[in-house]
Design a protein around this nucleic acid. Sequence first.
DNA 1: TCACGTATTATGTATGACATAATAAAAGTA
DNA 2: TACTTTTATTATGTCATACATAATACGTGA
Lengths: 235, 235
Amino acid sequence: MDAIELKENFKEVDTSSLVDKVEANLVTLLQQRKLKVGDPIPKELELANTLGVSRTVIREAMLRLRVMGLIESRKKKGAVITSPDLFGNMSKSMNPHILDQETLKQMFEIRLVLEIGMADFIFQRITKEDIAALREIVSHEPPATQHHLFNIEHEIAFHGKLYEITGNENMKKFQSMLLPVFDYVHHSGLLKKPISHKKFVSHKGLVDIIENGSPELFRNAMRNHLENHFARLFE
Amino acid sequence: MDAIELKENFKEVDTSSLVDKVEANLVTLLQQRKLKVGDPIPKELELANTLGVSRTVIREAMLRLRVMGLIESRKKKGAVITSPDLFGNMSKSMNPHILDQETLKQMFEIRLVLEIGMADFIFQRITKEDIAALREIVSHEPPATQHHLFNIEHEIAFHGKLYEITGNENMKKFQSMLLPVFDYVHHSGLLKKPISHKKFVSHKGLVDIIENGSPELFRNAMRNHLENHFARLFE
DNA sequence: TCACGTATTATGTATGACATAATAAAAGTA
DNA sequence: TACTTTTATTATGTCATACATAATACGTGA
């Protein structure tokens, strides 16, 4: 009997610690939708007694839920269920010096995907004021020869505004976390091909399309606008 | 002197707890890129002595890092630096019964954005085998009248395969987490407008375009394919 | 040289004590 | 009575200590 068959015939040994089990317990407790945001969960000592483990274990399990943003605990009140901030929790890990290169590259890619794919939401939800704001931003668009940092700030202002227009706060939050990673990948030696500064569709060109074009046109224009980045990923 | 001026003249009081401080300490330790993945960090007792706090505080701070996926701790070995699994950490929170409605809706939207925006990566990285696999999947495409669950499985197989083709594992992981949310939003009363089953570009149509078309064509086709979902979000 | 048992080490778990903050109850005052 | 102040209660936050457990290193004997 070879190794693969063996693996199928044996049950997985439960190697999880006490804390793991309690955590799983609590998570399923939360997921049974009898409980809503704001509802309190049992006190540490109650849980310790009920589950037959020490308060230390309970605390560590609850600590995990707290770090994940699933609960919040206040003195005297105990712990209450909260609606987690999905991307907020990610921000501490989203650091170029901590992530491995493959992940960094993939984050770089995801940004490109998002900006091309969000066209419909921009067109659906944009307001007159948004267009005015975009016009204001592009009026300061620096020439490609400008100093790097200046360009970066302009990039952030313009593209950040686009995310804002989609009205999708989670996507916006994700983007702001992606920014330093994107910048890092762009300038570190991670991408082998050199940085190109060929001129494609400009920010102003994109705004023109937003005003007079269609989502289809915008997607293609954005794809073109990002060509310098794509060129470094492909081939 | 009014309240606003007062606020400007006073420094912010440092309200962070001991654990917060230790955590910040450790994070900066990790971010100094002298340390690589796999390197060990000091033992709990050493840290407790060095920083002058109890082991409990150290453990809680390290626990946070562990939950975020920045470190892993093993008995005897101590804690070592790991490369965090950005989206993996999110999965426990990504539950329809825990998230609030607005967030759920935004996750629904992000899926649409990703699938439209990822065209270039599909075209760049697809192989003959991938196309064969897609063909195999669409050959089982059920009629729209089929039972819900059957359709869902087919949807997952097809769209999941597309993510896989992009070669972006993080995006794929994100997608698989999004699946239950998407399904929930689709069928719960969260979106006011009724579910439409109008026929637009089919999965088979998408595969044809992948084989003979271009990223531009694919984006538009995917947008069309997802029209039933967009229609429920927009007016 | 290898196998096996033993010591060591760092995390995991348990327990008890006290600090602190938020709330509820009680007491006091107009 | 109504309203403020004080006091008690309660549940989490922090600290300290002891022991359990698992992984590793060491040493002994064949």
